[in-house]
Simulated scan of single mutants.
Amino acid sequence: MMRVRHAEQRDLNDIYTLAKKSGIGLTSLPENEDALIAKLARTEQTRQGHLEKSEQGYLFVLEDTTQQKVVGVSGIEVAVGLIEPFYNFHVGKQVHASKALNVYQSLNTLFLSNDHTGSSELCTLFLDPEFRKNQNGKFLSKIRFLFIAAFQQKFEQKLIAEMRGYSDENGYSPFWSALGHHFFNMPFSKADYLSGVGQKVFIAELMPRFPVYVDLLPKEAQQVIGQVHEHTRPAYRLLETEGLKYQGYVDIFDAGPTIEANIDDLRAVRDSKQRRVIIQETQTPLDAPRFMVANDDYKNYCAILVEAEMDLEHIYLTQIQAQQLHVEVGSHVRILPLNT
């Protein structure tokens, strides 16, 4: 059975293995043991209420309970940019016109922006390639929305997600080569890594403060602005179905799109329901709808996928499913269809 729960220190080795598999571009899952230990400590301190909002973050793991192995991670930052600036480019326009010369030019530009300061952020989504089946990836991503729906008061009104931008199989980013490389004088992989382990001061020190005219960039760089990495397209489409949209902001390193939504507009916030648990002995037929079911226990949060029958007040779970959720007869659980 696959279960999502809070990440814990005992998961370090499995998560480090996932970080090695994630490749270049996933800045929030660096192949750095100290950074991962700190991330695990932070999610624990967040759950215990020991951190200010500016420092809070959650990390969830997808666990194969049969093998007792962590095979995926996903995360939420509570409020970005309140300690160190949160940067992206806003894709805007500059108009150059002369009536006397009968010239009018509207040019696309990139402005360095801190507009998403204070937003909550979806981050750190990665699933072991061997487990990219049986809708595991969809479950791992969408469970964050169900958690937000249960504990809205702990998050900001705006939710964002930075999507991985285009780079080739060798880690070459045409956008970085055309722009960032000239200001940072380091490979894309190194800048990406330094950002991931928290060394972000160099961004403020080195990035251009004036608008960048897109037309002055090479064509291959222009073409990838706002484009999603091939491996990230399924995640991008999934987040769109939950209510997030591209609003003209891109990553400063690889120009991947940032998508956003107000929390009140999320599908999980609108459509998730609570039901009371009833234990049944037999398993529901496999053609029943699939639901995410979570225990709504903030400190010991966990969720599973079930094919369950329910009515307006109850959901029917097996004893094993109830045990995985740490619930019993009469407990309240939160449910949401996995598929829209």
Rank of each mutant, 00 (worst) to 15 (best):
F145L: 12
L146G: 11
L146V: 15
F147I: 00
F147W: 11
I148C: 11
I148N: 11
A149S: 14
A149V: 11
F151K: 01
F151E: 03
F151L: 03
Q152R: 14
K154C: 03
K154Q: 11
K154L: 10
F155D: 03
F155N: 06
F155T: 09
Q157I: 07
Q157C: 07
L159Y: 02
L159G: 03
I160W: 06
M163R: 00
M163W: 05
R164D: 03
D168G: 02
D168Q: 02
E169N: 10
E169F: 05
N170D: 12
N170G: 08
Y172W: 04
S173Y: 06
S173N: 06
F175D: 04
F175C: 09
F175R: 05
A178I: 08
A178K: 00
H181K: 15
H181A: 15
H182A: 05
H182K: 13
H182R: 11
H182P: 03
F183W: 09
F183M: 04
F183C: 08
F183I: 10
N185M: 12
M186H: 09
M186W: 01
P187Q: 00
P187A: 07
F188V: 12
D192C: 13
D192P: 12
Y193K: 09
Y193H: 13
Y193R: 13
S195Q: 13
G196F: 14
V197K: 01
V197G: 06
G198Q: 11
Q199A: 12
K200L: 12
F202H: 15
E205K: 14
L206N: 14
M207A: 13
M207I: 13
P208Q: 00
P208N: 02
R209P: 07
R209I: 14
F210K: 11
V212H: 00
V214L: 10
D215N: 10
L216Y: 01
L216Q: 03
L216K: 02
L216G: 07
L217A: 04
P218E: 01
K219E: 13
K219V: 09
A221I: 09
A221F: 04
A221T: 09
Q222G: 05
Q222I: 11
V224A: 01
V224D: 03
V224W: 01
I225Q: 01
I225K: 00
I225C: 03
I225Y: 00
I225G: 06
G226W: 02
G226E: 04
G226P: 02
Q227A: 15
Q227P: 00
Q227W: 00
V228N: 04
V228C: 07
H229N: 13
E230N: 12
E230C: 06
T232V: 07
R233D: 08
R233N: 08
Y236L: 06
L239R: 08
E240I: 12
E242M: 12
L244T: 08
L244Y: 11
L244D: 05
L244G: 06
K245A: 14
Y246N: 10
Y246F: 15
Q247S: 14
Q247K: 14
G248I: 10
Y249P: 11
Y249Q: 10
V250M: 00
V250L: 03
V250P: 01
D251C: 13
I252W: 07
F253N: 06
A255L: 07
G256S: 11
P257D: 04
P257V: 10
T258A: 04
T258I: 15
T258N: 08
T258K: 13
I259P: 09
A261V: 14
D264N: 11
V269G: 08
